[in-house]
Structures are given as structure tokens and as C-alpha cells.
Design a protein around this nucleic acid. Structure first.
Lengths: 124, 124
DNA sequence: CCGTATCCGGGCTGATACTG
DNA sequence: CAGTATCAGCCCGGATACGG
């Protein structure tokens, strides 16, 4: 155990050896993931619908975000072989396990936006 | 209110008009902020100490992160006019209000890292 | 000890055009 | 409708060197 590792002694964070928590944080805390997850709370959504409800997301980023979330097992992708094609995205149990925390963070942001804004400008 | 704004009708997220939640999410979900906040749980820490306990952070990023968090009113910066200089960073009440959520997210990452990893490789 | 200043490369991101 | 492909800009972030 190196000196750099022994901060666990005074921290409640379990097993943050290396940077894998950072890896997940980057994944989940990226530009759009949490928002997409939060928006899937009410049930499956279609690609185009997500594009509409996520303000300002580009086709590219929506596709990449969804692909990443699917690869990580947080959402499922279901394609119905119809014409016109229909694809639905929904949360997996793993994705749902993140929902509470994601929502809490979004709510925190929503609640404290004013305070942050105010404090930021008071020290301008 | 534009058409793009009225998705609130089917979402439980309060007042996510525009992209200010995205703004906070970017701020708080960036590469290091959550980790720093989580590490300040036990009390004030000095600059050098933070550099040691945050695995892999560079001086630049630590400084930038701390400055941003200070500007947003999440942490305080206290400089003691001594030689050698000593600077301590601590959470404000606003910062503490984020602590639970931050910790929850870090814990989630820690808990589900294996599952994500496994799912990701199973579909390689 | 606690930063700041500068350089610089890489990856994220949006815009645009195209496909099944 | 649901994507993919390509390009170009920008900002993040590390390394290094320097200042208070």
C-alpha cells in the first residue's frame, strides 16, 4: 500500500483504488447520459421523442449516448420491424438503480441553481 | 414557451427549461468535482493533501476545480498567512447539501462497476 | 507550500450530408 | 423514422516551467 492509497483511512468511499470510479463518473456524468436516464423514468421512449425532449441534443450525441448506455447495460434498445421503423429505448434494472441518484442530482441542480448563480455573480 | 419546452407534461423533472440543468450537471459532473466534494466530507483539507488523495489529478485541474467550486459557493478557501503558507478547503452548507447525492453517485459507481464492466465485455 | 502561465495534443461536439 | 459518415472547431486536460 502506497502513501497515495492510504487516504481510505479517513474517507468513507469504498474501494476507489485506481480510477475506475472516475471512469464510471465520466461515463454517467457526461454531457447527456444522466438527462437521458432521467427522461426514461416514465417508460420507453422512441428515438425521435428523445431528440425532442432533450433540449439541444444533436443526432450524433443522442446516438452516441444511447449506444454507450446500451453497451453499459443501462438501457435496452428494441427495434420493431415495421414500416416506418420504430425503435424504443427503456431502462434496464441496472439503469433504474441509477434513476434515484440521477434524479436526485437533477433535482439538486434544479433546486440550487439560483443559489449557485447568485454566489457566482456576487463574486464577479 | 416553445414546443421543445413543453415536454414537462410527461416528465417529473421540475423546471428544466432551457439548459441550466445541463449547465449545473456539467459543472458538478465534470472530471473531478464530485470526487473532490466527496473527499471533503470528513472536514477541511489542504491543497497538497487533496492532490495526494485524488488519484491522478494534475495541479492544473486541482486548481481549476477548486476555483470553480469556490466561485459556485460549494467550498470555501481559507489561506493562513504563515510561512510556509497553508490553505484549507472545506465544504459550505451548499456543498454539504450535495454531499449525499455525490456520495450516492460515487457509491453507485463503486457498486455497479463490475456489472457494467461485465455487460460491456459480454457484448464485445 | 501554493499556486500561475504556457504550450500542446486528443477527444468531444455540432453541423451537414447521406442511407436503410 | 432511425440512424451513419465525415469534417472541422473548440475546449478539456496533462506536462512542464515559473512566480508569491
Amino acid at each position: 500500500m502506497t502513501d497515495e492509497d492510504r487516504h481510505g483511512a479517513c474517507g468513507p468511499l469504498p474501494a476507489e483504488h485506481g480510477g475506475f470510479i472516475r471512469e464510471i463518473l465520466d461515463r454517467v456524468g457526461d454531457k447527456w447520459s444522466l438527462l437521458v436516464i432521467a427522461l426514461l423514468r416514465d417508460g420507453p421512449r422512441r428515438y425521435t421523442n428523445l431528440q425532442q425532449v432533450v433540449p439541444g441534443i444533436s443526432q450524433r450525441m443522442l446516438t452516441l449516448t444511447l449506444r454507450q448506455l446500451t453497451e453499459d447495460g443501462l438501457v435496452t434498445r428494441t427495434a420493431y420491424p415495421e414500416v416506418p421503423p420504430r425503435v424504443e429505448y427503456a431502462l434496464t434494472p441496472l439503469g433504474e438503480s441509477l434513476l434515484d441518484t440521477a434524479t436526485a442530482l437533477v433535482n439538486w441542480a434544479s433546486t440550487n441553481y439560483g443559489a449557485i448563480r447568485a454566489h457566482r455573480e456576487s463574486n464577479a
